[in-house]
């Protein structure tokens, strides 16, 4: 073979070897594919651990867990709530994330805004939707500029108890 062929071939081989050496150092050693194969799961395995280590902000305060944790200190409120209409709403929806409460934050920031109540209690003309079963108001007419919680007790929202 002539020397100009060798020269090109040498450059190509050098490039390939160079890229493979670079790859050897650059690609993390735990790159690979799990049981779902190369097409769907070629990845760095340690990334799964990184996602698992993300900080948790919300506790599990669904109806059952609320008894267990929030009720340890606030049993008076939890007892009223769980029996009543708002009992299905998780505490943290209004009281804010409380994973490390009472250490951090010591006091939760409570969202008392009208906007929070209006998420469910704006009257929408959707008779076929579950939304229709929730009592609703027209926010442009019903005591504008006043806080809902000034009159209504969110823990015991029954109108007859107002």
């Amino acid at each position: 073979m002539k020397s100009h062929v060798w020269r090109t071939l040498f450059v190509v081989i050098l490039l390939v070897v160079g890229i493979m050496v670079f790859r050897l150092f650059y690609v993390p050693s735990d790159f690979g594919s799990g049981k779902r194969g190369f097409m769907y799961s070629y990845h760095r395995f340690s990334n799964e651990g990184e996602w698992k280590a993300q900080p948790i902000k919300y506790r599990d305060t669904g109806k059952q867990k609320m008894h267990e944790y929030c009720g340890e200190c606030h049993d008076d409120v939890v007892e009223v709530r769980t029996e009543d209409l708002h009992g299905t709403i998780a505490c943290e929806n209004c009281h804010g994330p409380a994973f490390d409460h009472p250490e951090d934050p010591e006091e939760l920031v409570i969202d008392r805004s009208r906007a929070l109540c209006l998420r469910c209690h704006t009257d929408l003309p959707y008779t076929t939707s579950e939304r229709h079963r929730i009592p609703g108001i027209d926010p442009k007419e019903h005591n504008v500029d006043e806080m809902c919680v000034d009159c209504h007790d969110p823990h015991n929202p029954r109108l007859e108890d107002m």
Binding site: G34, R36, R44, E50
Partner: peptide, 26 residues
């Protein structure tokens, strides 16, 4: 998932327990 197939750098993937994740460093 079509999204993990097209990733040119192996940054998004499906875990063995069926969750599709994105590797933020990659």
């Amino acid at each position: 998932p079509p999204c993990t197939q097209v990733c040119p750098v192996g940054a998004t993937y499906k875990t063995d327990d069926g969750v599709v994740l994105v590797d933020r460093t990659w």
